[in-house]
């Protein structure tokens, strides 16, 4: 049983404060949705949790199983069991998805397994996600469609088996079929590995496949409302405006 705890997190980028005190607790097996309009700080939270060097933590703490991870760089956080599915995955030419996944697998699991030993592991994960075998031979994200990139991210999550997975707008840019595949894939991995998931999204549609037990709304760098799955349908009906009341007064005046 793992637990990610975010306590009073303040994050600045290039001197501008984006997160203004975020609290969040995610345990193994839990699915959390973080919703909210653009500019609310959702993606900043994702990058800051993974350890992007551009994001400065000005106060607060993030612990995994009781230990602060703030001093760790991204690779050490990955090895500790944190995973981020990127909104915009990077393309790397000349490196196949398969060899990259093997390197990542070895790094995260502190192993040195050969390509031959890795193949069946990868094939198992690809079967679980219904991914075509030829996919792994292609260069990492190079020339992938939007949907392929997102599925490659989920495949990486499946291979790395993190304790806590943060999925940053994994649903954006996907058509209905792709969305269903990605959504079901997340469910399968989460239930198989028992990972705690944080799903960051604008829309409720992915949440139909990945039913969150916890829903949070982020506005102006804070979580302004938390609830269960029923909050998702409330947001679907009413949008976010009614929640802006919950923001601190100075936030409202400054827009």
């Amino acid at each position: 049983m793992s637990k990610l705890l975010v306590k009073g997190l303040h994050v600045s980028i290039e001197g501008k404060e984006i997160l203004k005190g975020v609290d969040l607790s995610v345990r193994s097996g839990e699915v959390h949705a973080i919703m909210g309009p653009n500019g609310g700080g959702k993606s900043t939270l994702a990058s800051a949790l993974m350890g992007h060097p551009k994001y400065a933590i000005t106060s607060g703490d993030v612990t995994l199983d009781g230990k602060s991870i703030l001093a760790l760089d991204a690779s050490k956080r990955a090895r500790a069991g944190i995973f981020l599915a990127f909104q915009y995955p990077q393309e790397v030419q000349g490196v196949s998805l398969e060899s990259f996944l093997r390197m990542a697998y070895n790094a995260v699991h502190a192993k040195q397994i050969s390509p031959l030993e890795f193949r069946p592991i990868l094939e198992g994960k690809m079967a679980l996600l219904g991914v075509d075998g030829a996919f792994a031979g292609r260069y990492l994200n190079d020339g992938f469609s939007g949907g392929e990139k997102k599925r490659a991210e989920i495949l990486q999550m499946a291979v790395l088996e993190p304790k806590i997975a943060i999925l940053d707008e994994t649903d954006s840019g996907l058509d209905v079929t792709a969305l269903q595949k990605v959504g079901e894939g997340i469910c399968r991995i989460a239930s198989e590995t028992g990972a705690g998931c944080v799903i960051i999204t604008h829309y409720e549609r992915i949440l139909r496949y990945v039913k969150p037990g916890f829903t949070h709304v982020m506005l102006g760098g804070r979580i302004v409302k938390s609830g269960g799955f029923e909050l998702v349908s409330q947001i679907e009906k009413r949008g976010y405006d009614w929640l802006k009341q919950a923001q601190a007064p100075e936030e409202r005046t400054s827009g």
Binding site: K54, A74, S75, A78, L84, V92, V95, M103, A107
Partner: peptide
């Protein structure tokens, strides 16, 4: 780029390992 390094490091690769991976991909032809 910082973003590319961050991406690769978020998968557990050390900074120099990530750089070497990018370079190896670059010389792949």
């Amino acid at each position: 780029s910082e973003d590319r390094l961050f991406y690769l490091m978020s998968r557990g690769l050390g900074e120099n390992e990530a750089k070497a991976l990018i370079v190896r991909g670059f010389v792949e032809p």
